[in-house]
Design a protein around this nucleic acid. Structure first.
Lengths: 215, 215
DNA sequence: ACAAAAGCTGACCGATCGGTCAGGATTTCC
DNA sequence: GGAAATCCTGACCGATCGGTCAGCTTTTGT
């Protein structure tokens, strides 16, 4: 009995990672119901029985992936106060959210799929965390508006605007690629899109950068 | 034999409509693979066999719904020229897209689901139509920028910004409702969100309204 | 009135679904 | 070296999948 702590089986870790990656992709593509364990197993190059041996059940696997995604997002803008510079904070928000769309597109799509399904697994439990996140930021935005640092826009709509615009580059990449006849979105696309969003949204909210480089 | 033209069976029309409505909802929620004909039949209050009698197959039903959605969107901003007022056109675009999110949320979600799946049914055929739509509008935006009527922003990113921000209120309604603790989005929510988007996006692109009502 | 057309449905098909399990292979630990 | 723990898998389970079909009822056209 006993020491199942520090080194923690490299075999399990390796296989779980392969399963998680494959599952995230399949769940994102086909939703919870449309994803089959067989498809996940094939994508991971592992027999179906072995997948179930590691993850227990489809439901547990799905919830694990959802929680992993929520965790990544809650790390964003973890500390913001009304004394920070609005331009810097908004720009950091937009750029870090875009970076998530670029580096973890499957996570973003998995979340989108869950929401489209009516959020049956998130519903109350995890929306609470997001609600706190949103409320604390809206307070800061309101404070900035009172100090005249930005226009008095609805802070909730502003957060959803940034959320949707950045999310779009992960969730709807297929559409963007299809319409613009690219092969895929590359780093330069994400850079120019981030620049565009920062410019338009900051200006649209009446937020001025401290250092106006062009003037 | 013969006159199967004008009055056109009211029975078939009525049942097809019930099936289409139910199917749009189920496909939007669970994706193509995750949606079952039995679930659609139950939602429509019709036996499974009868659903198949009318629509032929799951594939055909799905494609029919997709085409219906694309049709609605292609009707938007059907005629725009560089001589029109940028503020009026952009505002009309935002508001009409928001109205679609409000009145046909299931259509929007169905499209989102199709894109998340990698657009297996749209792919080349229907992306072509959207590409033409986008290209003709980007030309107008570029013309406006040259005339100094708006900032020289990337027209493609601008279209996707408006697309994503408006689409969000249909596709992610569950998230918005869950976070803001509403029961559902009502007409007033859509009005204030539309106002917000018009204000921020127009200002963000350097587009001035002709009649500044508040000054 | 009556045949033709359209509407309708339960029973059924092979395939696949999520999940279980017995039991063999391999690794770990003393 | 050998027991214990972990890893692995093919066979199998009942349920559900999309789709077919024979045969019934209802509506339509004349």
């Amino acid at each position: 009995m006993g020491n199942h702590n520090l080194p923690e089986a490299t075999v399990r870790e390796r296989n779980e990672q392969r399963i998680f990656d494959a599952a995230e992709s399949v769940f994102a593509r086909h939703g919870y119901r449309g994803a089959s364990i067989q498809a996940i197993a094939s994508a991971a190059g592992i027999p179906k029985s072995n997948v179930l041996y590691y993850v227990g059940s489809k439901r547990r696997l799905y919830i694990t992936l959802l929680e992993r995604t929520m965790w990544r997002w809650n790390e964003m803008l973890s500390d913001v106060s009304a004394d920070d510079d609005p331009a810097e904070v908004l720009e950091a928000f937009i750029r870090s959210k875009m970076r998530l769309s670029q580096t973890h597109p499957q996570s973003s799509r998995l979340f989108a799929s869950e929401i489209l399904q009516g959020a049956p697994f998130l519903k109350e439990s995890l929306f609470g965390t997001m609600r706190e996140w949103v409320e604390s930021r809206t307070q800061v935005f309101r404070e900035w508006a009172e100090r005249g640092l930005m226009d008095p826009v609805d802070p909730v709509w502003l957060i959803f605007l940034i959320w949707s615009a950045t999310q779009h580059y992960a969730d709807f990449e297929t559409q963007i690629v299809g319409i613009t006849q690219r092969e895929a979105l590359d780093a330069e696309d994400f850079r120019s899109a981030s620049d565009f969003l920062c410019q338009v949204i900051l200006k649209g909210c009446g937020v001025r950068r401290r250092d106006a480089s062009t003037l």
